[in-house]
Write a protein that binds this DNA or RNA. Structure first.
Length: 279
DNA sequence: GGCTTATCCTGGGCGC
DNA sequence: TGCGCCCAGGATAAGC
């Protein structure tokens, strides 16, 4: 499940491998992986463009072509963007295939087909073609502060776990790191978001940043599908405190980790370390 | 406007 | 061995 650390890791791998290279051919094997424009235009428009920069905003990968907005990718659940030698066999779930002038290739694979690609023409910006980009909240590792979080969560009655998954509040957090950050903050995921006190918001902000930073250092988290741009798995799952550990003992107090559904998402927590359901 | 729920999608795991 | 069911979850639409 690619979240901010996984997407950042993929971006770093792309930067190291494709800048200066040129797209020589495009093949779309699954039309609904291309969100914009139509498949025919997507294919013809990309050919001949040079990769000039790779950036990340939330969970979006934004690749500039010839210095202009160009190719955007959201990996969603199971998307993988891997740079590999040109003679490498196609992945079983290959959806979009880019041949590069250098002889290498980029394979976009996506088992569950939730991921999307956009071609953004020179006359447009990423934000005009992908409106949700403009609505994203602050980048947690650059602009997030306890004051910003306090303002965003003020008077919110929805539970804090659901609020953390809202990309308009904080960009880039998904199910894994929301659970981990709440555990390390000692905050129960079922607490109403608006009930968090200033000292808790300061702690939560610090732990969000610490968890994401550590996960990036570990190359992300691999539970099933994620790999970096070179096809290598992440390692953070071995360090997780609660996510994916339901039924196991808490690393801090030995209480059995619980799993409940919150907003339709699996939520993992320790009922001892995160006791405070309501204030 | 705020919030919850359903939907998309497909492979893997499990029970029978 | 094969079949059917359930689960995973990011983003968005629909409904309350």
């Amino acid at each position: 499940m690619p979240e901010l650390p996984e997407v950042e890791t993929v971006c770093r791998g792309l930067r190291a491998n494709i800048l200066g290279d040129t797209i020589a051919g495009v093949e779309v094997l699954r039309s609904d992986s291309v969100e914009y424009p139509d498949v025919k235009t997507f294919k013809s428009s990309l050919i001949g463009h040079e990769f000039s920069s790779v950036n990340r905003r939330g969970k979006y990968i934004l690749i500039s072509l010839n210095g202009q907005a160009g190719l955007a990718v959201h990996l969603r659940m199971s998307g993988r963007l891997i740079v590999m030698p040109g003679d490498k066999e196609p992945d079983r779930f290959l959806r979009v295939h880019l041949r590069l002038k250098s002889g290498r290739q980029i394979q976009y694979s996506d088992m569950r087909v939730f991921g999307r690609l956009w071609y953004v023409p020179e006359s447009e910006s990423f934000e005009t073609v992908i409106p949700t980009l403009a609505e994203l909240g602050p980048e947690p590792l650059e602009h997030l502060t306890a004051n910003i979080l306090q303002e965003s969560l003020k008077d919110r009655k929805q539970v804090i776990k659901t609020a953390l998954l809202d990309q308009r509040i904080i960009a880039g957090i998904g199910n894994i790191y929301a659970d981990e950050a709440l555990f390390l903050s000692g905050i129960n995921p079922l607490r109403p978001a608006g009930s968090l006190k200033k000292n808790e918001l300061i702690k939560l902000t610090e732990t969000i940043q610490a968890v994401l930073t550590r996960a990036i250092e570990a190359g992300g988290t691999t539970f099933s599908d994620y790999t970096n741009a070179e096809g290598v798995n992440g390692r953070y799952q071995h360090e997780a405190f609660v996510y994916g550990r339901d039924g196991e003992k808490c690393r801090v107090c030995a209480t059995v980790i619980e799993r409940v559904k919150v907003g339709g998402r699996s939520t993992h927590f320790c009922s001892t370390c995160q006791k405070n359901k309501r204030l």
